[in-house]
Design a protein around this nucleic acid. Structure first.
Lengths: 216, 216
DNA sequence: AGTAAAACGGAATCGATTCTTCCGTTTAGT
DNA sequence: ACTAAACGGAAGAATCGATTCCGTTTTACT
């Protein structure tokens, strides 16, 4: 039976270049705007027409799914790194902060924790795989006396969601506020303490709070 | 010049009844769904047609504004009550919890803190009037040694927003979770502590976390 | 240079959503 | 019964974003 000589022909040079631009633009915008990005927005940032976008992807869902996967993968990687350490207390707080930072600064990650997003296989997988790892990291930190015993593994997504929500709301007028909030939150996880962790990040100003009313 | 004999004629009985139904339905739905309620939804719950709604209100904005006002007014009232007390520490934590509860259980309040809502004079007024009162309540609690010194008045809306976000996201599958989170958060505000406040509210279950993926 | 296939741009289409208006019908009040 | 008030809900208008379609431009190769 005669088969096609070249099962996969080499794409044209401009097509390859545009695919890269598309992926770059989509990646940036996904971090900035999460699942709310429109294809038009992506096309514009890539300097392409929407029609061209569709020649490179199946549809919007497939594109976002592809962009989301590595972000969620990184969560698992970080968690495994924490479990590799032999200082359970600091390792747990390190992990929590790494995750909090990613959630705070990445709208797509915030959407995963905070928003009603279309069903994503990767999200289901993340939950299934993260659960035992996160639980173990927490248990070890508790065994080491670094974390209050009544903290539950299910509190972890809750804490991260809170951090994400804070930066989502206040980050626009006072970037970095998530870190101030995180410091506060972390202080509540210790079984006891004789002092507070110094709040390094400056508080918001009244003016910044006022800016919340003006759109965009 | 002849004037109208009855400047304001008595409305028909059914009109009066419907106006009340409308206000009741709108009030309920505003608490449940915040600024996202549609007039159609309100009309349906009131058992009226949308056309009828418009005979009772100017437009959507006016209706929501009217419903929002008393909620914000209550915030000021609670704050003044806290300032009337002579136990600054407990008074501050009492106030924070009262406000947190309202924010957590009322979507309209959450929207005020968390969402991009249309400009509302009442919100501007609230900010202006709450600021000095909230600041005073905090300062007194700090002077009494009940609250860490580096907490800033602008952190208050931030803390409340976080509580609201938590219940917004997790309340559907695990109502009351805001309270667990609040307890945790409150523990971080003390200058020091030798133990933790017992977390009375049970944590979420893994199943509940999983339900977050399914819409509605 | 010349040509055909590949790729492109963006207008047009489609669907969904929600405020608001309009008008024919129903109901309260006398 | 009759009239003015009130009602219901379809229709109009606007917005927004995914997806498709097709005439035009570019690349690759002779």
């Amino acid at each position: 039976m005669p088969v096609t000589p070249e099962p996969t022909r080499r794409p044209r040079k401009d097509a390859e270049r545009n695919r890269q631009r598309l992926l770059d633009a989509a990646g940036e915008l996904f971090v900035e705007r999460g699942f709310a990005v429109s294809l038009e927005e992506i096309a514009a940032r890539a300097g392409l027409g929407v029609g061209t976008v569709y020649r490179h992807i199946d549809d919007r869902a497939a594109l976002l799914s592809e962009l989301l996967a590595p972000m969620l993968e990184e969560v698992l990687t970080l968690t495994r790194q924490a479990l590799d350490r032999d200082d359970p207390g600091p390792a747990f707080f390190w992990l929590l902060r790494e995750l909090a930072e990613r959630v705070a600064l990445n709208q797509a990650m915030r959407d995963v924790l905070l928003a009603e997003i279309p069903p994503e296989p990767m999200v289901t997988r993340l939950r299934a795989e993260f659960a035992p790892l996160g639980t173990e990291a927490l248990r070890r930190a508790q065994a080491a006396g670094a974390v209050r015993d009544d903290l539950d593994p299910t509190d972890l997504p809750l804490l991260l969601a809170a951090v994400g929500a804070v930066e989502l709301r206040f980050g626009r007028v006072a970037p970095g506020t998530w870190e101030r909030f995180f410091t506060l939150l972390a202080d509540s996880l210790a079984p006891s303490r004789t002092s507070t962790t110094k709040l390094v990040v400056v508080p918001m100003t009244d003016d910044q709070l006022g800016e919340l009313s003006s759109p965009e």
